[in-house]
Design a protein around this nucleic acid. Structure first.
Lengths: 95, 95
DNA sequence: TGTTTGTGGTTTATATTATAAACTTGTTTA
DNA sequence: TAAACAAGTTTATAATATAAACCACAAACA
């Protein structure tokens, strides 16, 4: 039906999509875990997490585990909704 | 299973994906038809068709219909295969 | 007690991309 | 014949993705 619904550019990015895909399945995840799973470089991941965070798609909290800094990410309700919308739009492209 | 399979950057683009999605369902399609269906500007479409063409994902032929130039596009076997691979990879992100 | 190695990131620079604006070529219409 | 139109292409710009370079701190040497 409806032609081609625009795809949320924030989600239509390989790394950000992988991050969201990962986060949607867990309570929360640490930076290093996400980095490993997505095979991203730290710099790239840092930038993309920032974008998702600024869009309120995820919540990022910084803390210390012993003496080591730990960055933890959690998908928000807004993020879940955006992801679902994106997936539905995408289905219009790939049947 | 398998982490996140890389997504063919040539297909991971809203407009090129829409074009491929369109072409996969028809024998062939004219430039103006694709333009209308995708709501793209002519310039953007021209550029993206060129990229798909250079990758041999589509075949572009120029002819005349009466006195008007007509550009016709047709997906190739390579294109169909790439599209299918892309869709499968994508499923790893959205399922 | 330096100094070097490792961890956990961030900032910055660069190369690529997507996109629209401006242009071209030819045709039809007023 | 000039103006508007059709069908694209070329070029300029803004946005993006990405990696390289960097920073702060801790632990392990020497």
């Amino acid at each position: 039906m409806s032609g081609f619904t625009p795809l949320d550019p924030l989600l239509h990015s390989q790394l950000r999509l992988a991050v969201m895909s990962l986060l949607i399945g867990v309570e929360s995840a640490e930076f290093t875990f996400i980095k490993e799973k997505t095979q991203a470089t730290a710099g790239n991941l840092s930038v993309q997490l920032d974008k998702l965070s600024k869009a309120k798609y995820i919540e990022v909290t910084k803390a210390f585990k012993g003496k080591k800094p730990v960055t933890t990410c959690k998908i928000t309700k807004v993020g879940v909704a955006a992801f679902e919308t994106y997936v539905n739009a995408l289905k219009g492209y790939i049947e």
